[in-house]
Design a binder for these strands. Structure first.
Lengths: 145, 145
DNA sequence: TAGCAATCATTGATATGTTAAGGACAACAT
DNA sequence: ATGTTGTCCTTAACATATCAATGATTGCTA
């Protein structure tokens, strides 16, 4: 039996890309005022929520690959948005913590970011929004079990 | 009234990224055997489905920005996967068409790609899968109206 | 305790995403 | 026919994604 490729208009990868474009557009508009990239914002968000983290955990929670994280963290440290500390018991590890300037940015833009998030929830409706998150989680390789 | 930022674990942008990772992983595994990138595969898929297209339409249907498309198309033309022709009536435009080698790749891997797509549909169930596509479409800026 | 494998992180190389600027052509008004 | 404006596409510049290779430590083991 032969499987037909779905039309690209009903292709899951393409639908995910387009949805992401739609969601990120207003966020990027907001971020352009901060000088932060989307990924840098994600790093700050995670650090603000969970406190100091080692690189592995941070990479995991911000959904960034290690090589990207290395470069992003290094750029953010130069701007004093975060601090990097070597773990004293295991010098391979690195602890990353949000710095004052980073926390200030978060505080300054949290409201606007929350409003953007809220606008998408409003567009879909609460129930659809929650279900979308649940369905997306089912595709997340980290949560498959 | 104050909006709270949602926890990153229930953040829509992050959920979209992770879902995309999960969906693309097996596709990338497949593509590694072809020497195609994910985007090149998408270009071939669109051209195979719709026939020869001008760059704008192709960019739109493959969800690629123009600068990316320029580079991708140029790389694919070098490998004779596609052909580029200047539009005779409007020399600004370019018509892009799948070439024999490109069509061969599509034919060769269509089954495997369809099976991967089918496995995600099976994981979510038909109904959930369709609803996911519908919800994602609601976030697509091109379909908002 | 010297050697080796495993872990954590960085670097390199190539492709793409993103924004801004530029180049070529077309359509239109004067 | 000329200049202006708009459209289609490319180039440039920078940041990120991805995979592969390498460096730096640690932990284990003979």
């Amino acid at each position: 039996m032969k499987n037909e490729l779905p039309s690209t208009s009903r292709s899951l990868p393409i639908a995910l890309i387009r949805a992401r474009e739609g969601v990120m557009a207003p966020i990027r508009d907001m971020l352009s005022a901060t000088g932060l990239t989307e990924q840098q914002w994600r790093v700050l968000r995670v650090l603000a929520e969970f406190g100091p983290l080692d690189s592995s955990t941070l990479a995991d929670r911000a959904s960034l690959l290690f090589p990207s994280l290395t470069r992003i963290v290094s750029a953010m440290a130069k701007r004093n948005l975060i601090t990097q500390t070597r773990d004293s018991t295991d010098r391979r590890r690195q602890i990353i913590e949000i710095a004052e300037a980073g926390q200030t940015l978060i505080d300054e833009y949290a409201d606007e970011a929350a409003q953007i998030a809220g606008s998408f929830r409003a567009r879909l409706g609460d129930e659809n929004y929650e279900q979308l998150l649940d369905l997306l989680a089912m595709l997340d390789p980290a949560q498959r079990d």
